[in-house]
Design a protein around this nucleic acid. Structure first.
Length: 672
RNA sequence: CGCGAGGUGGAGCAGUCGGUAGCUCGUCGGGCUCAUAACCCGAAGGUCGAAGGUUCGAGUCCUUCCCUCGCUACCA
């Protein structure tokens, strides 16, 4: 059996954060290291995803070329991987010539088979820049909430999604002029052509993770729609059709092809240019894509469909172990708000393998997990340091002090044999969990083994036995050393560097193969050196990290004052009828998060209205309050309730604050 | 409302094929002194979101409902 392992291509427009690592890279790296220890034929392929609109925008903003943006982040991402020991056989990028060629071949094959068809659509075109504007290149007034600064396809203020051509007063983000609507032609992938094949294929994948399988089956059932796979952009893989000048392939179309082009690049580098075919065209190869859950659709539907539509008989993914997300201190990670732990920064502060351990043991395998600095500290200190680190340290120092660093092999009692058997059992269990991507389970088993070692050591009391029965103590030490050396094998996929250091201390061969766990050790241990391999993380260090996180994120939250609106005349102002009203009753509108259904007393009449304040005010807390209401706003039906007016409230990043009259003005009083 | 994922002792989690409910941390009590104030033993603490059902037996299967999170919608 041969293995081809990939991780989702990181997008070359930002740094790498711990969420990325936990989901797509560390589990893959551990899996690959395990396979390599088993001397399996495996390569680990990745690279940066280097096309698409955000990169073009970054380039324009910095007045540079997309290529230079890509180069910068490619370097930074690769450096971060190096720091935490994510080792690829090849780390390429999609803006390379070989990649263009294959991507175009993919398109052409699908096109020739009739799976790709052209369609005309309308889109905004900037006459000044002479280019069509993708959604992210346009800004304007939201057609629904009339808020300024709405994006081309979506309004951040009200959340509406719409077609960019419906935007009011659209402006080109590059030059600021007003674009015009023009017709443009795009090419669509007819995914539905593959529904039957895909369904059949997924049916055989009973061993897939539930989240992936369910998601995919669901989509297939709902029916697949045609997807546009081209864009009007200059940065990307040109569409290989004479009539498609100025168009490039959509980044999502060419990105997964990067797995192939990176493999080809690898084959060329090792001087065997045809080797890539072993991994892509031979059905004896298992292809495994590690991804985050955001990538499931592309890897389980679109990508297999693309592969199915090729002339070459490509292997389909054997498994797609998608992981869930890692939150940070209870909140979603957000790169733009700087609410993230960056890998390169983190590795400056703490030993990189602490991060590997924490992310492994806290892997978001079945549900979203939380990265918390306090939890990180606790797990490193209590588990790695106290349980494993201390076991190693107490055994090694005892051996150094009382056995002059040399512990001979000796016959084992039943008690010791039991421990050795437990080691063997754990080895088998780890084998099973590693091969099923169960990183968490492996770590737990190994730590349990270390705990057993501590218990064994305690029960046998070598410090006492040594005085009366040195052989008894020797047996204890020898057994513990065996256990530790086996742990150094079992833990190698997760903590390669630290385990190598440990093996150096133990005086055993530094190169590890998995077979070693099954060997019976009959030779003496000669200890090289005694020193702690882990250290505790201090409270101060954690305080510092937390503070840094808060201050980094804070300014991002505080900024963003909304732009001042245009001047209006007094006359326009006076058309608004603002009144004081008393809230008579309030209840939540069912099935909504933010809406309260209110009955208010305006003095001269009672009215119903709906207010979006439920997240900030409990119904019982505002009944009886006197509030400020815009009373002549045209009624609008929301969730079946006719809302006759609007409660005035102030809003900032901390939430909403209802305006209240400072003195006891009666209901119906006018406000100006 | 739609889709997806979850709801297990104070906290964070594991529970594969249905068979007396586990782990780590925390708390309380004890032991040890080889070791990085580390380690070991013991105890308290859960009607496994709720209700029905299948079964000799369900955290584990089925049905309905409730709650939380993500995407989505609502947010005059």
């Amino acid at each position: 059996m041969r293995y081809l392992v990939t991780s989702a291509l990181p997008y070359a427009n930002g740094r790498l954060h711990v969420g990325h690592v936990a989901g797509a890279y560390l589990p893959a790296d551990i899996y690959v290291r395990y396979l390599k220890m088993k001397t399996e034929d495996v390569i680990y392929i990745c690279g940066t995803d280097e096309h698409g609109t955000p990169i073009s925008i970054s380039a324009d903003k910095e007045n540079t070329t997309p290529a230079s943006i890509v180069q910068r982040y490619h370097k930074s991402i690769k450096a971060a991987f190096d720091k935490i020991g994510i080792e690829f056989d090849n780390f390429s990028g999609t803006a390379r010539e070989g990649h263009y060629r294959i991507s175009q071949e993919f398109f052409t094959n699908l096109y020739d088979k009739g799976h790709i068809v052209p369609k005309d659509t309308t889109q905004l075109y900037c006459e000044h820049d002479q280019r069509f504007l993708p959604d992210r290149y346009v800004e304007g007034i939201c057609p629904r909430c009339k808020q300024e600064g709405a994006r081309g396809d979506q309004c951040d203020a009200c959340g509406a999604t719409y077609d960019a051509t419906t935007l009011i007063e659209p402006k080109c983000k590059i030059c600021g002029t007003t674009p015009v609507i023009r017709s443009t032609r795009h090419w669509f992938l007819k995914l539905d052509d593959f529904t039957g094949k895909l369904t059949e294929w997924i049916s055989s994948k009973t061993y897939w993770k539930e989240n992936v399988r369910n998601f995919m089956l669901n989509l297939l059932e709902q029916g697949l729609v045609e997807r546009s796979i081209t864009r009007d952009l200059s940065w990307g893989v040109p569409v290989p059709l004479p009539e498609a000048e100025g168009k490039v392939l959509y980044v999502w179309f060419d990105a997964p092809i990067g797995y192939i082009s990176s493999t080809i690049e690898w084959a060329e580098k090792i001087g065997q240019p045809d080797r890539w075919k072993d991994y892509w065209l031979d059905p004896n190869t298992q292809m495994i894509h590690f991804i985050g859950k955001d990538n499931i659709v592309f890897h389980s539907i679109i990508w297999p469909a693309m592969l199915m539509g090729q002339d070459k008989k490509y292997c389909l993914p054997h498994d797609i172990p998608a992981n869930e997300f890692l939150n940070l201190e209870g909140q979603k990670v957000s790169s733009s708000k700087d609410w993230a732990v960056w890998v390169d920064e983190f590795a400056e502060t703490f030993p990189a393998e602490y991060l590997r351990y924490y992310l492994a043991v806290n892997a978001p395998e079945t549900k979203d997990m939380d990265f918390s600095f306090r939890d990180f500290q606790a797990r490193i200190n209590n588990e790695l340091n106290n349980v494993l680190g201390n076991l190693i340290n107490r055994v090694l120092s005892f051996a150094a002090k009382n056995f002059a660093s040399r512990v001979e092999a000796c016959p084992l009692s039943e008690e010791s044999k039991a421990l050795v058997e437990e080691v063997m059992r754990t080895a088998h269990e780890c084998e099973e969990s590693y091969s099923q991507f169960g990183v968490k389970a492996s770590c737990k088993k190994i730590m349990d083994l270390a705990r057993s070692g501590n218990r064994y050591f305690d029960e046998r009391k070598p410090w006492t036995a040594f005085k009366t029965d040195p052989l008894h103590a020797q047996e204890t030490l020898f057994t513990c050393l065996c256990l530790i050396s086996k742990i150094s094998v079992l833990f190698s996929p997760v903590l390669p560097k630290t385990m190598a250091e440990l093996r150096a201390l133990l005086g055993v061969e530094s190169k590890v193969t998995w077979n070693e766990v099954h060997n019976v050790i009959d030779q003496a241990f000669v200890i090289n050196e005694v020193k702690p391999i882990f250290r505790k993380i201090l409270d101060e260090e954690i305080d510092q990290e937390l503070e840094r996180l808060q201050t980094k994120a804070a300014p991002a939250k505080a900024k963003n004052y909304k732009a001042l609106k245009e001047l209006i005349s007094y006359d326009e102002f006076s058309r608004m009828d603002i009144r004081i009203a008393r809230i008579l009753s309030a209840q939540k509108v069912p099935k909504t998060d933010k809406l309260l259904h209110l009955v208010i007393d305006l003095g001269f009449e009672e009215r119903e209205l709906v207010a979006g304040i439920a997240e900030h005010y409990a119904p019982e807390a505002i009944v009886g309050k006197k509030v400020v209401v815009l009373a002549n706003l045209e009624p609008r039906k929301i969730r079946g309730i006719v809302s006759q007016g609007m409660i005035l409230a102030a809003e900032d990043e901390n939430g909403l604050s209802i305006l209240l009259p400072e003195k006891d003005s009666g209901p119906g009083s006018t406000v100006q």
